[in-house]
């Protein structure tokens, strides 16, 4: 019987070639001879994403590191593979991979619902609770992966805890940092018309990294602690302590001459297209020239005597922390702030 691979003449009846080990019973075996094919889209992706060429190298490096961890901890080899670790990132993915589709759908659906609701209520106690629940569900999905293998409870807990720690460090913390770059929630503890106590607005702290604030922008700023003395009743002057976080609109920039009177605002002699957020709160009479590197922002959300406005309205550039662009809470007033 001649081997198809090396043409070695074998004894009749043998299963494999005596020289090269190739199967001599291939003609009798039911083997699919049609190779798997890549779809057109997959080929395009592979061509356009050079990173996929390096994925194998990355996976080999991760596999090496995981093999080291396996050697130390003694965990089953099928729990610490790059594929399992990757599938842990999305709750339900590992379950779907294991063929438990219903459980996978429930886990992913509940996680997505909790995560989106948490983001919707960002900045409120309920929001943090929902985000915490989403994280817990993620931990539960990892415990489920560990539970599917034969592991005692203690080791399962350690495995899940370690996996969650890694996930928090690798996924959640960077994601949180990225989110805080574009959306930092600010909650109003006291009513500041038109905002009410409990309102949450989103601030974009990165808005002015590359450009300067412009008149018309609604910004979040922090007043430096300072005392403003105004004539009070009797001999003693009234003292207003100006400090804390505020939200209002920029009305003029450095060098502009602003006059205000009879409910109208003029910048450099022309009527301003912008008004403070609380347009009812305009001083009766005020004349200010905005100093260098400062902006004019009327503290219209506070009830301050006109004499204090002169001091409180000049905000240095460095005190502006970001642009306010969205009201997140309450939901019935959800929308952009212009």
């Amino acid at each position: 019987m001649q081997c198809g691979n090396c043409q070695f003449e074998n004894m009749p009846g043998v299963q494999t070639c005596g020289r090269c080990g190739a199967s001599l019973q291939l003609a009798l075996l039911a083997i699919d001879v049609h190779p798997p094919r890549a779809s057109r889209a997959a080929k395009q992706w592979r061509r356009w994403l050079p990173g996929t060429r390096y994925w194998r190298r990355f996976r080999a490096a991760v596999a090496g590191a995981l093999a080291g961890v396996r050697g130390i901890t003694g965990w089953p080899s099928d729990l610490l593979t790059p594929g399992v670790c990757l599938r842990m990132i999305v709750p339900g993915w590992a379950q779907r991979h294991a063929g438990r589709t219903v459980r996978a759908r429930w886990m992913f659906g509940c996680y997505l619902g909790l995560l989106l609701s948490g983001l919707l209520f960002l900045g409120t106690g309920l929001g943090w609770l929902l985000l915490g629940l989403a994280l817990s569900l993620h931990a539960a999905s990892i415990m489920d992966i560990a539970g599917a293998r034969v592991l005692d409870f203690q080791r399962r807990l350690i495995y899940s805890g370690a996996a969650m720690l890694v996930l928090v460090a690798v996924v959640y913390y960077p994601a949180g940092q990225l989110l805080s770059l574009v959306a930092t929630p600010q909650r109003f503890n006291l009513a500041a018309p038109p905002f009410e106590a409990g309102d949450v607005v989103l601030v974009n702290p990165s808005a002015y990294r590359r450009s300067d604030p412009q008149p018309g922008d609604v910004v979040h700023y922090r007043l430096s602690p300072q005392d403003a003395r105004v004539a009070g009743p009797g001999r003693y002057p009234g003292i207003y302590r100006l400090q804390g976080d505020r939200v209002d609109r920029i009305l003029a920039q450095a060098g502009d001459k602003v006059t205000c009177g009879q409910g109208k605002l003029f910048v450099n002699g022309r009527p301003s297209p912008w008004l403070p957020i609380n347009s009812r709160q305009l001083p009766d009479r005020l004349e200010i020239t905005v100093p260098e590197n400062c902006y004019l922002i009327f503290p219209s959300t506070d009830l301050l005597p006109p004499a204090v406005w002169q001091i409180a309205s000049i905000v240095p550039r460095g005190r502006i922390s970001g642009r306010v662009y969205w009201r997140n809470q309450p939901l019935w007033r959800f929308g952009s702030i212009r």
Binding site: G4, N5, C20, G21, A22, I31, P35, P36, R46
Partner: peptide, 21 residues
Amino acid sequence: LEEYPEAELWSRKGLELFPSH
């Protein structure tokens, strides 16, 4: 045809049948 993962998979299958080819 630039189907490299498929080629790798198929060659692995071929090597199971002809280990020293």
